[in-house]
Simulated assay, not measured.
Amino acid sequence: MQAEQVLNRVRLVLDDEVVEGSLVIREGHIADMDTCSSQLPGAVDCEGDYLLPGMIELHTDNMEKYFQPRPKVAWPSRQAALAHDAQMAASGITTVFDSLSIGTVEMNSMRTQALEKMHDALLDMQQHGLARVDHRLHLRCEVSHPETLATFEKMAESPLLGLVSLMDHAPGQRQFVSLEMYRTYYQGKFGFSDPEMAIFIEQQKENSTRYSSEQRRVIAARCQSRGLALASHDDATLEHVVESREYGIRVAEFPTTLEAAEASHRSGMAVLMGAPNVVRGGSHSGNIAAAELVRRGVLDVLSSDYYPASMLDAVFRISHMDDGYSLPQAVAAATRHPAQAVGLTDRGRLVPGLRADLLRVRLLDGHPLVQRVWCAGRQVH
């Protein structure tokens, strides 16, 4: 790592404004900023590009596709994790909470089979200094699955763990209020016949009735006692929001209705929506569009979800929307707000003293292109 780097002629995206100037990186941190150009001969001319804080991803299952690039094809763990890590860096994401699922409803899922391998690969990558960016663990707990609590207890002591979400993908509620959408999704995924699909639906409903409430309550209590950030998933009603608030939820992931999103925002939970929803112009499940939450001023956090490059694209799209956010507000949804939601106070803003997690961006025909990425002052892309 260089002792000092000076980034000159940049447009600094601050909390409330964009200003032209320069920024100094020293010993992995932002040492200084100025609204004047630097005259130092070694300063890097950034040619008027934007300089953003490195983006913070709270929810992505992107790593899974590297561990299983094709059905029934398992890839070596370290290589898979490093390929995922490189894509995060190239997308401008400098802190990532990798989402690993516990208790998936998918039959013979690689998520279950490779859970420990994915976790151990993340830990290996961090401990050996191989990672370009900072990786944390997000455990996604399917509370309607019989084995979720037991598996959570095994994983809860991981030094990487920083976020836990509570999910119930049973039919007829939350993400799948529409049974027709549920049938379409899972019949397409598993190739069920109509009779097989009917049996699957009844089994999932039964599991939800039997396990969800108790496992949700116990896992939430465990997280509160350990100071772990909690997220809800697919809240759809005011009753869901009230329950989430009682459990100490900090992040409302993917609320499915405007009613739930507005109530979550009012109650102090950070409303998280998928950047692909913004880029595609709507939800693939037919739920509330992220752009509508922007217009209402209740979208707090962006997540790339399943497509890492979508995050930066979404930031600039919502800053160009009619009735959208200013650029500093849009950038905050991918930087400052997710950091605050999970208690990371050392990053997410361009402020002297914070980590030099930085992203240099150039616009080409209105499209943001990543030019350089720094994580803790080290150039990683």
Rank of each mutant, 00 (worst) to 15 (best):
A330M: 08
S285H: 09
Q203W: 04
D300H: 07
Y211V: 14
H145E: 13
E259S: 14
L58V: 12
E239R: 13
A156C: 09
A74W: 09
L149V: 09
A220H: 00
E57F: 15
V251P: 00
Q379S: 08
L354E: 04
P69W: 04
K65D: 05
Q5I: 11
V342L: 06
F316Y: 13
D15L: 00
V133N: 02
V73R: 04
M118V: 12
R372E: 12
T184S: 13
L100E: 03
M33L: 15
K72Q: 07
F152Y: 15
A231G: 13
R183C: 09
A90G: 15
P195T: 14
S310E: 04
N62S: 13
E246G: 07
L100C: 02
Q87T: 09
L82R: 06
R245A: 12
P53Q: 05
S212Q: 12
G348Q: 07
C36I: 13
S144H: 10
A289K: 11
M55I: 06
G42D: 12
E142Y: 06
F200A: 01
L258G: 06
R140I: 14
Y185W: 14
L130G: 02
L160A: 10
L7I: 13
A376G: 05
R378D: 00
A252H: 01
Q39F: 03
R355T: 03
R362K: 14
E27L: 13
R296W: 03
S212Y: 13
F316S: 02
R347H: 06
R317V: 13
A31Q: 11
R280Y: 08
T94W: 02
P255I: 11
V19D: 01
F254C: 05
Q329T: 03
D313M: 05
F97K: 01
N108D: 15
Y50F: 15
A290K: 09
A114L: 15
L299S: 05
A309L: 06
T345Q: 06
L272T: 08
S99Q: 13
E239A: 15
A89D: 03
A333M: 10
V351C: 05
M273G: 12
S178I: 14
L350M: 04
A229V: 09
G227E: 01
N62V: 09
A231F: 07
A376P: 00
G286K: 03
N287W: 03
R336S: 09
E243R: 14
K154N: 07
F316I: 08
E64P: 05
